[in-house]
């Protein structure tokens, strides 16, 4: 049986161009009981991030005299995937939690809150490729709402290679049938790459091009995040 083509006449399955992001949507302060919370969705991928703290560290021996301790918990809810996902922590969620922790450590100015702990909980409500990118974007919004000092809003998006074409923001079938998937997290202010993972094989020139493509997507997402935050405040005033 012949495979269906993923790219026809420069258009992808969901009618996007090769360098186009899926539809972005964000909602802020969705939970009243937390200091900051945000929902971020890219297409069918939905991530919800909530921020608690700064608060007392428990157990005490984890405390750091010079900076705050950051704890990130990434969690895929049972109904997020096509087949039911077993609740609780898995190898995958532990890995992604630690990866996101390393991204946020470089963004938050942890030295401002010595001897405290900041907790970021991320839940994936619906998964359709690049969940870790949506998780980072949601966490970035939630942290800024919680009044936690940050260097900049961190943006994240994925790029990939399908049928020998470089594409931005892989989704659905492209993720499973594609050749390469490359999620990055990017800090536009300092031009730093905070997350870089890749599976598949790429030529050196292709890698350079793909990185540029992913950076371009991140810049778009960062602009979107800034716009969402500013709109949120002006909407509150008009109420």
């Amino acid at each position: 049986m012949e495979k269906t083509k993923l790219i026809v006449d420069g258009k992808r399955e969901d009618n996007r161009k090769t360098d186009e992001l899926r539809k972005l949507r964000a909602e802020l302060n969705i939970s009243k009981s937390t200091k900051g919370s945000a929902m971020f969705s890219v297409g069918n991928t939905i991530a919800v991030a909530t921020v608690y703290g700064p608060m007392e560290v428990f157990p005490r021996f984890l405390e750091d005299n010079n900076k705050a301790v950051l704890e990130v918990k990434y969690h895929m809810l049972p109904f997020s995937t096509d087949e039911r996902n077993r609740p609780g922590f898995s190898r995958r969620s532990t890995e992604i939690s630690s990866v996101i922790n390393r991204v946020l450590e470089n963004v938050i100015l942890l030295e401002d809150f010595p001897k405290t702990k900041i907790t970021v909980n991320i839940d994936i409500l619906s998964a359709d490729a690049s969940t870790r990118c949506a998780a980072i974007n949601a966490a970035s919004l939630a942290l800024s709402l919680a009044g936690i000092p940050m260097k900049d809003l961190v943006a994240s998006c994925s790029a990939g290679k399908i049928e020998n074409t470089l594409v931005l923001d892989v989704a659905g079938k492209e993720d499973t049938e594609g050749e390469v998937d490359l999620p990055i997290a990017y800090l536009p202010l300092t031009d730093e790459i905070l997350l870089l993972q890749m599976d598949g094989i790429l030529k050196k020139e292709e890698f350079g091009k793909l990185m540029e493509l992913a950076k371009k997507g991140c810049k778009q997402i960062c602009e979107f995040q800034k716009k969402t935050l500013l709109d949120f405040k002006s909407n509150l005033e008009n109420e």
Partner: peptide
């Protein structure tokens, strides 16, 4: 950055 009369709203990294 967004300007309104009297005050300016800024996001982290502005």
């Amino acid at each position: 950055m967004e300007k309104k009369q009297g005050y300016v709203t800024v996001t982290p990294g502005s």
